[in-house]
C-alpha cells in the first residue's frame, strides 16, 4: 500500500510532536523538581492537628472561612524571637476580624517553649510539632517561615525570614475574610 505524501507528512509530524513533548516535559519537570516538591502559592494548605501549650487542639481545616497566619519558629532563632511581639500585637487586632494566628515550634521541649511564651507574653496559640511531621509536610526551611492561608484554605503567600510589624499587618489584612 503506497503512502501518500500527505500521510507521510502527518505521521512524521505526529511522531516528532510526541517526542518533543516528552523531552520538553522531562527537562521542564527536572528543572522545577525542587520547586514542585515544596508547597506553592495557590496549593491547598495540607491539614494537620496540633495541641497548643494550653492543651487546646487546633485542626487547620476547622478554621475554614477564616484567614490563617501560620508561623513556624524556634526558640533559638533570633529573627523568630524578634518578630514575635509584633505578631502578638497584630493578633490582638486581627483575631476579631477573622484572622487566626498559629505559631508552630519545631520539636523543642515544653519547658523551653513555655519559658519563651511567658517571657514574651504571647497570647496567640503556640504548639509544638514533636515528630516534625508538620514541618516535613510544609517543607519548612529556614526558620522563621510563615504561611498565609486564605479563607478558602489555599496558600496565599509564603514568607521566608523575618517580618516587620507593618509586613505582618499587611499580610493579615490580605487573608482577612471579606
Amino acid at each position: 500500500m503506497a503512502q501518500t505524501k500527505k500521510q507521510r507528512f502527518y505521521i512524521r509530524t505526529v511522531i516528532l510532536v510526541v517526542l518533543t513533548i516528552a523531552i520538553v516535559f522531562t527537562v521542564y519537570s527536572n528543572l522545577t523538581k525542587e520547586k514542585n516538591a515544596v508547597l506553592q502559592v495557590g496549593d491547598k494548605a495540607p491539614d494537620f492537628v496540633l495541641v497548643d501549650m494550653d492543651g487546646n487542639e487546633h485542626r487547620l481545616s476547622d478554621y475554614k472561612g477564616e484567614g490563617i497566619f501560620l508561623n513556624f519558629w524556634g526558640t533559638w532563632c533570633k529573627p523568630c524571637a524578634t518578630e514575635m511581639p509584633a505578631m502578638d500585637n497584630q493578633y490582638g487586632v486581627y483575631k476579631d476580624l477573622g484572622v487566626q494566628t498559629l505559631a508552630i515550634n519545631i520539636g523543642e521541649s515544653d519547658l523551653k517553649v513555655n519559658s519563651f511564651v511567658n517571657r514574651y507574653g504571647l497570647s496567640f496559640p503556640v504548639a509544638i510539632d514533636r515528630n516534625k511531621s508538620v514541618m516535613e509536610l510544609y517543607n519548612i526551611d529556614p526558620l522563621p517561615t510563615t504561611f498565609l492561608i486564605n479563607p478558602d484554605g489555599r496558600i496565599e503567600k509564603i514568607i521566608k525570614g523575618q517580618m516587620t510589624e507593618q509586613d505582618i499587618a499587611n499580610y493579615m489584612d490580605q487573608v482577612k475574610p471579606s
Binding site: 511522531i15 516528532l16 517526542l19 518533543t20 516528552a22 523531552i23 522531562t26 527537562v27 527536572n30
Partner: peptide, 13 residues
C-alpha cells in the same frame, strides 16, 4: 537533558 532527549529522538527516527 535536551542532548539526551535528542539522542532519544535520533534513536526513534
Amino acid at each position: 537533558q535536551t542532548l539526551i532527549g535528542m539522542l532519544g529522538i535520533s534513536l526513534v527516527i
